[in-house]
Amino acid sequence: MDMTDVQHFALGDWLLLLAYLTSVVGCTVGLSCTLQARYALSARSRLSWLALAALSIGGVGIWLMHFVAMLGFSTPGMPVRYNVFWTVLSAVLAVVSVFGGLLVFGVRTRFAWWRLIAGGVITGLAVNLMHYTGMWGLEVKGSIGYQPGLVVLSVVIAVVAATAALWFTVAVDKPLHRLAAGLVAGIAVTGMHYTGMAAMRVHLDMGAPDPAGVEVFSFLFPVFVLAAVALAVPICAVLMAPPPGSRRAPVQVPAKQPA
């Protein structure tokens, strides 16, 4: 049995739009936090903003998008299961890897091209790392392989679009422009995911043992509760923070000279 028996939109084509919008929301909020980090007045504040950005982009924009998209994956008539360890690890790797990329790019106020490129590469690779780690936890009645050419293409898509999204955070500072950055980042994540899924080669075998693990729908409640928290905290922080660029370093008052 071959790939013709695998479905990526078993619940309907609308799942593609939902997955994309999930990524856009997470990435837009996260990139807003990244912009706030560039105007932070202290290293501690800057790192806090970047941590919130990584939580939003990595946890929601990347991992939750992957989770939503995988709701449509099916091998009709055969079970699909997920290894809990690899699934959770993919979420952790997404957040940690994005934080690493943002540290390179967003830890300094002054713009530098090498930081943008390095941050884009690391963040783009983080998308791929999460995806293929999560797919390692996918269990089917058979075996799974990948077409190398499409795997490489998925990496290129993620890196290029992630770099473009990061560039938006310093090139513009208006809300609509930040939304545009989120739309670009959403394309990176969603495009990478479905390119990676196109690279997958599933060989189903009726005689193979049933896969171990749990069904994807078993994750629904805890995942969406955690996702709500991962979005609510950064959103509240952005709403309560002053507009980017309005903060100024405190004026240094010279000490009085002794008479």
Rank of each mutant, 00 (worst) to 15 (best):
A158C: 07
C33Y: 01
G196Y: 02
I122Y: 03
I62S: 09
L125D: 10
G26P: 12
F224K: 03
W86R: 13
V238M: 08
A19L: 00
F221T: 09
L17E: 08
A94Q: 12
R178L: 14
R44I: 04
V24P: 07
G101R: 11
G191S: 08
T34V: 15
V60H: 07
V68A: 05
M206D: 13
L231D: 00
N128Y: 01
A54W: 07
V98C: 13
G12T: 12
V156F: 05
W114H: 10
L16A: 12
F105N: 03
P76C: 08
D5S: 10
L52Q: 08
G101N: 06
L150T: 04
A118G: 13
L31V: 02
C236H: 14
V184H: 02
W114Y: 05
M78A: 12
A199M: 10
P254D: 04
W136P: 00
Y132R: 12
V127N: 08
C33T: 00
I235W: 13
F99V: 06
T75R: 10
V140A: 08
P76Y: 09
G72L: 08
S246T: 15
G77V: 10
V6G: 01
W113N: 14
M206F: 10
A118V: 15
A212N: 08
Q147P: 00
R44K: 10
G101W: 11
V29T: 03
L125Q: 04
H177C: 04
R115G: 09
L204N: 09
L89G: 11
P76M: 03
M65C: 11
V170I: 11
G182P: 02
W136F: 14
V170T: 15
F85P: 06
L239S: 05
C236I: 12
R108T: 13
P148H: 01
V172G: 05
A40Q: 07
V88C: 08
L31G: 12
C27Q: 07
M135T: 03
P250C: 03
V151L: 10
G101Y: 05
V172H: 13
R247V: 03
S246Y: 02
Q36P: 09
A91P: 00
L64T: 14
A126Q: 07
M78F: 09
M197S: 02
V127K: 06
